[in-house]
Amino acid sequence: MEQTDAGPILIFRNVSFGFDDNLVLRDVSFELTRGATLIIHGAAGSGKTVLLKIALGLLRPTSGRVILFGLDVTEYTEQQWFDVRSRIGVLFQEGGLFDSFSIEDNVGYPLVNQPLLQVPPEEVAPRVEQSLEFVELGHTLEKFPSELSGGMRRRVGIARAIVTQPELMLYDSPTAGLDPITANTIMALIVKGRDMRHATTLIVTHRHQDGEILERYRWDDSIGGLQKLEGVSAGTRYLVLEDGRIAFLGSPAEFDACNDPHVAQFSSR
């Protein structure tokens, strides 16, 4: 596969999805540079998940272009997408774990099945363990998703997303339906993944706290936890969707200063 390291990792150029009477995304354009974090806010039904699925090739935009890793992937076939997706890690809203597989098989699934990765069989188990250790769930290898709590399932989802060491991480409402303490644990893991692996991160959420954690904290490995930054972490940008349109796109400072009432409800300041 062609590889282009220069320039933004993900570009949406006038992307729309849906039909005239029911447009879910309208003319959405943005760029995500390597190593940056994009936080997408929006109410339910504003098109957040659709945007994420388009970025992952699960849905094809009705119009506009999508450029990933420097390649125009808009017209890619499913087979071509498999190669692109091997460079992307994704956490689905409910974790998207396979019920019938053990946690070990769930986390090892992309290593075994991504055609481009070609991981030798003897390397699968150590990498799965390492990835589960990362989310502090090393003891759950033999368990099944139904035996874990909602928060633990989400953590396994993160372990599965990072096991392939992807360059781009997509998170779909990682804290939805979780209590605040568990939600913060999940966010800490996402910050840890971003800072320790320098992965480009796109996160879709409706909780303003999630954005604030990504923006103001960084992972400190010496203390094994989050540490507040003096300023804001560089490269963080906000995008707010309203009925499929971009209502706001800009830096944290601009986000704080925005007076638009719809945007302001996500900034909490």
């Binding site: 992952l56 998207g96 991504q114």
Partner: peptide, 12 residues
Amino acid sequence: TEQIDAMRALGT
């Protein structure tokens, strides 16, 4: 439960 989407995303 998005398992089919996950399957596609994970290379199957």
